[in-house]
Write a protein that binds this DNA or RNA. Structure first.
Lengths: 237, 237
DNA sequence: CCGTATCCGGACGGATACTG
DNA sequence: CAGTATCCGTCCGGATACGG
């Protein structure tokens, strides 16, 4: 095949030519989640090499899915955003997520643990509404993570947003959450609940009474957490 | 990366790991279109090597998307069908098609001409209802195709189905359609109509008056032909 | 007819280091 | 911060040949 195409006029094949190259779908998910800068995208796709990221962004730009802004002469400050065509891919990416949540074995997902991605996602989806109308500081401690990734602070400033630090920001703590990475990821993905994890001691939450009690509420889950699982008794996998 | 995975627990990434390897989406489209045998699948994905097709089918089987039937000891007569999980991918594949039809430049699609795929698709989507309640034989002649792919017969037997031959089946003709591959593909994809192609002479239809007149009706178009194109004036691609 | 195995060359992708 | 350059391994495509 000359140059990676499928040589089929069928629109499915044409679209797959653009979208089904390595990392592209994951990169689009990251763009949809709101990252626009090169290094922000790298955080969301940490195992993708910068060379390939650069190449994919150019390809998506050429395909009309992404638009680059801000690079007059230098390239400082340039941002990548979805075009109209790119925004119309949102339901498609969501379809990947729903299908994956529904049909990929939870054990398989939980063999791909990554604290950094987890915390970044939690930052994005945390719901400040159940929190008190003042700054709240929540520390996560992962005893099974490497030292540099064991402690994380989520700082919620009402009306401002949510900040994530992996170094002590120096504020007083309202809550400390303690778990292993797997348990916290399982909760985040909706495979179990705060309650069940507390019950058998794999999770502990200490500090402000109200915040501890409402953790399942303010902890926003993955956008796919509520996807129904298939009924039992379907064909074997 | 060890072995092609993305190492992300995110269900989008997990699903992309299964679905976004080379040829996989196109193969799934073919399975959805109803092909079940190895060589039938090869016809629909002609540029995929048999080794890779075999490998992908095994991967999809392992992922629970496809089930193989009929291979007790030998492998003769085995068939591949979508499982429940596979059938739930149908909307996702359709989303690829709709997006491709809407956002991929028609000229780009029309640079991927393939008479064989075109005729096979036409066979699948032809609508016998507007045809008379007897056998109809329609011959397509493509003057710009290589000799072996210049002549095609569609034989419609009411109540039985539609047959496609590239050698003369020996029946009397009801209609002969004559065009270049590009024109016929453009019509099939909904980028132009029988009427416009007839008007400037790139298409000619001769034979039975009624059948000639109703060609746009009995010629079923691509499932994506009716997808609306984006309004003018959106961002550049 | 229905696949599987192998070999080879080329394109793609990963890791690392480096520059404006 | 925003990418490039380089090196090297792996995957893919094409051809061919072989077994059920």
């Amino acid at each position: 095949m000359s140059k990676g195409g499928y040589e089929q006029f069928c629109p499915v094949a044409m679209a797959a030519e653009v979208l089904c190259t390595r990392w592209t779908i994951v990169l689009l998910r990251e763009l949809m989640a709101g990252s626009t800068r090169f290094n922000a995208l790298r955080r969301g796709v940490p195992r993708m090499s910068p060379a390939l990221l650069s190449q994919r962004l150019k390809e998506l730009e050429a395909a009309g899915v992404v638009a680059k802004s801000g690079s007059g002469n230098g390239q400082a400050g340039s941002e990548y955003r979805l075009t109209e065509a790119g925004r119309e891919l949102i339901p498609l990416i969501q379809a990947f997520g729903f299908w994956g949540q529904r049909w990929i074995d939870a054990e398989l997902s939980l063999s791909r643990l990554d604290v950094q991605l987890l915390m970044w996602d939690m930052r994005r989806n945390l719901d400040p509404d159940p929190l008190p109308p003042r700054r709240s500081v929540i520390r996560f401690r992962y005893d099974d993570a490497v030292a540099a990734q064991a402690l994380w602070w989520l700082i919620v400033e009402p009306g401002v947003g949510v900040d994530l630090c992996s170094v002590d920001p120096g504020h007083d703590l309202d809550v400390e959450v303690r778990a292993d990475v797997r348990t916290m990821t399982a909760i985040w993905m909706g495979h179990e609940t705060v309650k069940t994890a507390l019950a058998d001691g794999r999770l502990s939450v200490e500090g402000d009474r109200d915040l501890c009690g409402s953790m399942q509420t303010w902890l926003g889950l993955s956008p796919f957490a509520s996807t129904p699982k298939p009924a039992l008794g379907t064909e074997a996998g």
